[in-house]
Design a protein around this nucleic acid. Structure first.
Length: 427
RNA sequence: GGAGAGAUGCCGGAGCGGUCGAACGGGGCGGUCUCGAAAACCGUUGUCCGAGCAAUCGGACCGAGGGUUCGAAUCCCUCUCUCUCCGCCA
């Protein structure tokens, strides 16, 4: 949620920033916000004055009663009944105005940072750089969805039997590879100074609202109706919510947390022919990193986060590129976002494996995540998060890029984790 | 699943319906003392909204939402959550 004070003080800047996202009718929306804000403040002022009056009378009555002047007290009593009615009416107006205002604010996405290019969609993203060598595969190379069958390491049919489409079963070396990647990612994060967190993978409604999954993206999460809980779509939700309603001390900053969780996404309406195999799943594994920083540090931290994620890809010897997302392609909460994509050589496609975002105060505003600065003033912190990394597409690229006549080669850095250096047929 | 207890500030824990934003203790912060530290002592220690350049002032907040009352942390109702014991179980 954008800060009202920002909209109030920098209307033009907010509008021009939001235009980079191609938000329709943004002037009207912003002016509606300002009008509601104005109405709310006026109502509040009047409301508070009436209450002050009524509090004063109540206090007087108390004193009169104490000193036994009952008739004078009675006289004042009648004066308050009219006040009460007016207060009740104003409270109603105030609540309604505040609710409409909040509703409207919830619908406005974050303002893109100055660096973010204007653009309508993926074609307007900027390739910041490419890294690594795209392997030349032999003519009989096949996409991962064929490899996993040939080597019998990931089984979609069994997943359908147990659960449904998009819930694969990892078997043998396939299962070990998952475990190895999770441990590798977590170890790398820990070495970098991240505190490891293992959070619940079910969260309550309050958590969903605080990080912005609710109310709008409700359809993307699996809900446990009987207990009114949600399966997390990413570890961002529980880890960031650790800091909901928290006022941190400046010496606690920056906070850097990393956590592994399975992630659950309904992906309603987002299936198509290009999302075969591991390219899109309902359940997948991911190591997520979360930073909480002072406003002045967040962009430096953002660069460090993306560099950390890139170092994982480099270590895994996967060719990748970094994209700076344009306004139209950025997530709702982000002020600036980098995507990392690996090249899956058999599909001959770039696959997104990480998305590293700076939310500035947008998320902290809903979370009520603040700190006391050196002047003792309480102010909102910046939150950032990123994948480091999401497993399925990493696995897809590893399988496709490393396939050869002798089987699928495991990158050396992973061998201590897997315990094997090649995936062969029948074993 | 059964039975009971409770929800108050950073924590523990009081709180006759009328200076209660809230006693007391602990913690934190600042200070005195000390070469330094501990101890002791003194002081200080909430959030949000609104008005104001500011000092400051007004309002709200004692799980949430309603109600009674001139006045509610205190009385009534509803909801939510937590804890304890028993049962079941990794």
């Amino acid at each position: 949620m954008l800060q009202l004070s920002l909209i109030r003080e920098q209307r033009e800047k907010v509008i021009s920033a939001l235009k980079k996202r191609r938000v329709p009718n943004i002037e009207e929306t912003i002016d509606q916000v300002l009008a509601l804000d104005h109405d709310r403040r006026r109502a509040q002022q009047e409301h508070d004055e009436l209450l002050a009056e009524s509090n004063r009378i109540a206090r007087e009555i108390g004193e009169l009663m104490k000193s036994g002047r009952k008739d004078e007290a009675e006289a004042r009593r009648t004066r308050t009944s009219d006040l009460k009615k007016r207060v009740a009416a104003l409270t109603e107006t105030l609540n309604q105005t505040a609710a409409s205002l909040q509703h409207l604010l919830y619908q406005i996405p974050n303002t893109p940072h100055d660096d973010v290019p204007d653009g309508a969609g993926p074609d307007d993203n900027i390739v910041v750089h490419e890294h690594g060598v795209i392997p030349e595969l032999s003519g009989d190379a096949v996409p991962h969805w064929d490899l996993i069958k040939q080597y019998d390491i990931i089984d979609f049919e069994l997943g359908v039997k147990l659960t449904g489409a998009g819930f694969p079963v990892y078997k043998g070396k396939g299962a070990k590879l998952q475990r190895a990647l999770v441990n590798f990612f977590l170890d790398k994060a820990t070495k970098k100074g991240y505190a490891e967190i293992q959070p619940p993978i079910l969260v309550n409604e309050a958590s969903g609202y605080a990080t912005g999954q609710l109310p709008d993206k409700e359809g993307q999460m699996y809900r446990v109706d009987s207990d009114n809980l949600y399966l997390i779509p990413t570890a961002e939700v529980p880890i960031t919510n650790l800091y909901r309603d928290v006022i941190l001390a400046e010496r606690d900053l920056p906070i850097r947390n990393a956590g592994y969780t399975p992630c659950f996404r309904r992906e309603a309406g987002s299936w198509g022919s290009h999302v075969r195999g591991l390219n899109r799943l309902h359940q997948f594994d991911k190591v997520e990193i979360v930073h909480i920083t002072r406003p002045e540090d967040s962009y430096r931290e953002h660069e460090e986060m993306v560099a950390h994620a890139e170092s994982l890809l480099t270590a895994l010897e996967l060719p990748f590129r970094r994209l700076l997302l344009c306004g139209g392609d950025m997530g709702f909460n982000a002020a600036k976002c980098y995507d990392l994509e690996v090249f899956a050589a058999a599909q001959k496609r770039w696959l997104e494996v990480s998305s590293v975002s700076n939310f500035e105060t947008f998320q902290a505003n809903r979370l009520k995540l603040r700190y006391k600065d050196e002047k003792g003033k309480t102010q909102l912190l910046h939150t950032l998060n990123g994948s480091a990394l999401a497993l399925p597409r990493i696995v897809a690229a590893l399988l496709e890029n490393n396939q050869g006549p002798g089987g699928i080669r495991i990158p050396p850095i992973l061998v201590p984790y897997t315990g094997f250096d090649v995936i062969e047929k029948n074993g």
